[in-house]
Design a protein around this nucleic acid. Structure first.
Length: 219
DNA sequence: ATCCCGAGGG
DNA sequence: CCCTCTGGAT
């Protein structure tokens, strides 16, 4: 199957399996989403959603979070991965929002990546969800799933390489949906350790299924 | 033992 | 390129 046809087939499959594709992170404004995405590094959305409601109640905006004492903010972050780094990043990020960006979440990749704790992936999520731009944030799910089902090649060894490949072949208007489709498929079907191939309609041409056909067919 | 919507530093 | 940060679920 040609690469273009493969994309069309996969996107068509996703569109019928994930009708409502949106972020599962809890947030109610751009600042809260930025905080939530920073916290989501190497951590499940479900556990981020456990700590953000009390966090947002105690520190509702950049103003209050920028002046937060580390030891006062840390307990809210403590139960997820990298609490020290993330506490530091949230305070520094809030301070830079006030000093550099007028207290608003900026809307370009370059500006967002200047913020402490914000890399390319987090910046792309903000651009997509808040600013409605067709960006593809490549997280662990997008990276793994794209390579397994042949949207990216084995030679695409970095998240950036996968991002470029996806952006080349996915129609602009479908990019935001495709982003969430890949995440949902990775989270609930194409799991890293124990992919649910029996419940997947994308076995044909899947590199992972090809290699692990025997052991996984019985699951 | 491995993974989770990674980022920063060397 | 590498390494470190780091808690909870599976």
């Amino acid at each position: 199957m040609k690469i273009k046809d493969r994309y069309q087939w996969v996107l068509g499959y996703f569109s019928t399996h994930f009708p409502k594709a949106e972020t599962e992170l809890y947030y109610s404004n751009p600042f809260e989403l930025l905080v939530a995405v920073i916290l989501s590094a190497q951590c499940t959305d479900k556990r981020v959603n456990l700590i953000t409601p009390p966090l947002f109640k105690a520190f509702p905006d950049a103003q209050s979070m920028s002046s937060a004492d580390f030891d006062l903010l840390f307990p809210f972050i403590r139960s997820i991965s990298y609490p020290n780094n993330k506490t530091k990043h949230l305070i520094g990020m809030s301070q830079m929002l006030l000093t550099q960006f007028g207290g608003e979440v900026p809307g370009t990749l370059e500006e967002l990546q200047q913020l402490p704790g914000v890399g390319r992936k987090t910046a792309n999520v903000i651009l997509s969800v808040i600013y409605n731009q067709p960006t593809m944030a490549v997280d662990t799910h997008v990276y793994r799933v794209s390579r397994r089902i042949g949207l990216a090649a084995a030679a695409d060894r970095t998240p950036l390489a996968v991002e470029k490949k996806l952006m080349r072949y996915i129609p602009k208007e479908l990019v935001p949906l495709a982003h969430h489709w890949l995440i949902l498929h990775g989270r609930y079907v194409c799991l890293a350790r124990r992919p649910q191939c029996a419940n997947c309609g994308l076995q044909q041409g899947c590199k992972f299924f090809e290699v692990n056909n025997n052991s996984l067919a019985k699951v």
